[in-house]
Design a protein around this nucleic acid. Sequence first.
DNA 1: TATTGTTATACTCTATAACTATA
DNA 2: TATAGTTATAGAGTATAACAATA
Lengths: 147, 147
Amino acid sequence: MTTKSSSQASTPLGTLANEVRLACMRISRRVRFESTDVIAPHQFSVMARLEDAPRTSRELAGIERVSAPSMSRTVAGLVERGFVLRQDDPTDGRQVILSLTPEGQAVLKDSRRRRDQWMAVRLKNLPAHEREILARAAEILSRVAGE
Amino acid sequence: MTTKSSSQASTPLGTLANEVRLACMRISRRVRFESTDVIAPHQFSVMARLEDAPRTSRELAGIERVSAPSMSRTVAGLVERGFVLRQDDPTDGRQVILSLTPEGQAVLKDSRRRRDQWMAVRLKNLPAHEREILARAAEILSRVAGE
DNA sequence: TATTGTTATACTCTATAACTATA
DNA sequence: TATAGTTATAGAGTATAACAATA
């Protein structure tokens, strides 16, 4: 449309959006299918949040955009399996501080390793210049996703 | 784009795999959250398969890697809503040929448009050279995901 | 009265096992 | 006997509504 600075004919914005989105969804789908994981996606996501910092159930529900009862159940399952620790907040009796146990940290690390393995095997077979493009794209996409 | 081998031993393979995977998952996650869709992800996926070509329930179950009863239910829901058409196979009475109705095609198109919209808005704000990187990355990632 | 969290209940998507109809 | 598909039943994950405990 407006931009013509590039020597090559730029991909129309709608088409590019579609291609980028589809590519990302295909990769996510394959990674999900290939990795035989100990924890489910939503559990992984919650544990990753707790890795950054201890949080309350309410905070997690807000971040993950699920209802309070749903998060309550997810957390209960992780506590039961020994991956998450519950501690009463000394300053506010209503709240419960949730954090990762060493077992939880190990599970999270192992889960990431399995997921990366599938991708690493495939990236290994790419020529160097394509890997360079993916490195740049990853930075751009992460920035876009965080907006 | 120039290859611009700024750093030959640039990103370690494991790190790159992690960054690319995370970037794709973040994009997928945001797209999923942002798009208020008429159809659920698994329904979208099935309808997209039928757009390529009419198929049987069994075929769809295999492609989508779900059980036959699960696919049976998913398809039943789409038929009930008028998005998918059932037709008895004249050569094999056991089989049922499934295909998209015009309504189904319209829903699929609309769903794609909504999903692309979120991405398009964000890509619009990127400089041209970054969009070029994403265009190339999309092609590479689609190839990798299809392996 | 407002907030944090849980329990009660229901809906959806998934699965395995058992069943019907056809080859 | 094998295959395509459905029905029966159960297990997760999600939601809203109602409840308890604390601020």
